[in-house]
């Protein structure tokens, strides 16, 4: 892809991002319930104090001006103050973000490392019992409601077998001084393999739950594209040359078969964002998703606003990367 084309695509993001911000702004502005009254709660204040608070929060200005302010501040990473925490929203979000990113990345890895081998096997052994089971499995994977699957896993592994913890990110005794705020990395950096295993035992069930629909989809994609590749002439040619089947499959076929898998994985990474809210709620995972859900119930508008915007911008960027990745990997496609 030429640089000019890349820049053109990049510029196309601007109206989308503007539109997304406008929708988020309108969504929150139209929310019923007066944020000032909610902040005041049971405290006794004079009307003047109430008015001052309203002015402080900029709630007395006209809508368009508030949107302009909101955008200007958002670009600088300033999303105002969290009504609930009494701290800058950006700070509260940044604090919760590593947990969410760590969970999403592990979910992505779980999905890739189960989906690719299973998809390849299903393609090689097409129409076998294994292939049928894989088909049924992937159908189940997209039909299972994530919140329920998570609870089933908890009941089995945490309550019944008692081999994995019920909730949280790490056990009390394994808490360490953070470096990168990614616990799986920090525990190793601090030389605490016991704490690493503890963090791992906490993350495994949420990651499986979050990654399940993605696993199901990627497995189907890998199977289909592998079958497609195996029908190509160059594979027949490689077979005729007398190359071993093993070498053909893993060296020649898989490399090309993975192009659609990688592209779909990039797109589906965006869909992990929505799943986070559910999974973090089920597993008491201290990430951004759970924070957003909690904030809705306490009407902590600035936080919900910033988080929804953050999710949407991330989603748009991930889809953009998926698009670029697809073109780079697959030179036949012109954007």
């Amino acid at each position: 892809m030429s640089l000019a084309r890349f820049i053109e695509r990049l510029l196309q993001l601007i109206p989308v991002l503007l539109g997304v911000s406008a929708i988020v702004f309108v969504m929150i502005t139209l929310t019923p319930g007066d944020p000032v009254e909610i902040m005041i709660g049971d405290q006794i204040v004079t009307p003047e104090q109430e008015e001052a608070l309203r002015r402080d929060l900029g709630l007395d200005r006209p809508m368009l001006e508030r949107f302009g302010l909101f955008l200007g501040n958002a670009v600088q990473g300033d999303f105002g103050e969290s009504f609930y925490h009494r701290r800058p929203v950006a700070e509260v979000i940044a604090e919760r973000l590593p947990a969410t990113i760590e969970l999403s990345l592990v979910a992505l890895l779980v999905a890739l490392f189960t989906a690719i081998p299973l998809g390849v096997l299903a393609a090689i052994k097409k129409n076998s019992i294994f292939d049928r089971m894989a088909t049924v499995g992937s159908l189940l994977g997209v039909s299972l409601p994530g919140f329920w699957f998570g609870i089933l896993l908890l009941m089995l592994f945490a309550v019944h077998l008692q081999i994995l913890p019920v909730s949280g990110r790490i056990g009390f005794s394994s808490e360490i001084e953070p470096i990168t705020h990614f616990l799986l990395i920090d525990t190793l950096l601090r030389g605490r393999p016991d704490a690493f295993l503890d963090a791992l035992s906490h993350i495994i069930l949420p990651a499986i739950t979050l990654g399940l629909p993605m696993t199901a989809i990627l497995m189907r994609v890998t199977r289909t594209s592998m079958l497609e590749v195996l029908r190509q002439d160059y594979i027949t040619f490689a077979e005729a040359k007398g190359l071993s089947r093993h070498r053909i499959l893993w060296r020649h076929a898989l490399k090309n078969a993975l192009i659609p898998t990688v592209s779909v994985a990039a797109i589906e990474t965006g869909s992990l964002l929505g799943g986070n809210m559910i999974v973090e709620t089920v597993f008491g995972w201290p990430g951004l998703g759970r924070l957003v859900v909690e904030s809705i119930f306490v009407r902590n508008y600035p936080l919900v606003q910033a988080a929804v915007l953050f999710y949407a911008v991330t989603y748009v960027l991930l889809n953009f990367i998926a698009d670029i990745l697809y073109t780079v990997l697959n030179p036949r496609v012109k954007l």
Binding site: P15, L17, V24, P32, G275, M277, I296, V308, N319
Partner: peptide, 23 residues
């Protein structure tokens, strides 16, 4: 354009945001 903008939201987050607003 409208379609592109709406596609910019993860589905569940969009719905959650709206439900928070509408009750």
């Amino acid at each position: 354009r409208v379609v592109d903008i709406l596609l910019g939201f993860p589905y569940l987050i969009f719905a959650i945001g709206l439900m928070a607003m509408m009750g």
